[in-house]
Amino acid sequence: MNEIELGSTDPVGARDGKDLVSGVPVLPLPAHTPRRADIDPVAAKRAERQVALMFASSIALLIAFTVAYIKVPNTSLVSIPVIGTVGTNHVLLGLTLGLALFLIGTGAIHWAKKLMPDVEVTQERHSLSSSAAERAEVVEIFNRGAAESGFGEHKLIRRTLLGALALLPIPLVVLLRDLGPMPNTRLRNTIWKKDVHLVTDATYQKIKASDIPIGGLINAVPENLLEIEESEGNLNQRGKASIILVRMDPAEILGQQGENWDYEGILAFSKICTHVGCPISLYQQRTHHLLCPCHQSTFDLANKGNVIFGPAARRMPQLAITVDAEGYLVARGDFKEPVGPSFWERG
């Protein structure tokens, strides 16, 4: 390590007040100004006490942490202004641990700033590139090795080796095959079928058409969803088959995706956004607009579920419905187009 004497006019890397590399003027490093603690033993002693106090407080806080862990039950709550109601145990642990760590940190830094040397030291930088001779030697060694192996000469060896290496990723890719099933027609169908009852999303009650008032909205799923176990893909089917039911004055319906797919003004639409598949939840009764909370795609349910704003490119698929003999809503079949976000094979 080459270090220079302080106070000499030209620092390392400068001559006649100019940087040897960039040529800009360089001023010398000014003489060091001693700190209070450097010259006054009382100040130094004070700094020592301050540092020790911080470390000692940290010790006390770590003990307090342990006491809080043992003594304060996990269930007790405390109300703190601005912050709100939080777990007492949680807050006490956070405060004691946080402060204990913080004080170790400030103690160490205070120590460094007040008592450790604050004289700036100059070290030389060395050029990062090697000498031309060394570089040439490396190239020579490389070429020698290449020549000794005959890599350039034995074309057959080289080509077959490269061929084998090129095919090496095959097992890596092939081995991933069983990560999941082939798509087949999975994304095209849902479990909706003819005469399947519409049931409410949360309590699975059949829905009587006459119970829905004009302006009403119900989240619904197919009744046969209940037959599918969670482990057999209940959520997968729910993610495709969920629908939203709205009832509007039939006079306000401007168009539907199929002739009379409604039942007396009750329209059923997929709940899964055609953009990236968020369940749509925001319905504006007055305008019959359905807004996706994820990316604000807006669909007009009174007019074929068409997109009227936002990043979604396709209308919301409509489900044709009717009622059974007792007046409960049933589906007239599956959706006529795939629900949810687009995919390459969708067409």
């Binding site: 620092p11 940087d19 010398p28 040397p117 030291v121 100059t122 070290q123 030389e124 930088r125």
Partner: peptide, 21 residues
């Protein structure tokens, strides 16, 4: 800054100042 050039580095040593800081 004063004393800083393209071919030097001016500051504090890792041990002990930077280790503490």
């Amino acid at each position: 800054g004063p004393g800083r050039t393209e071919s030097n580095v001016v500051g504090y040593r890792l041990y002990p100042v930077y280790m503490a800081k």
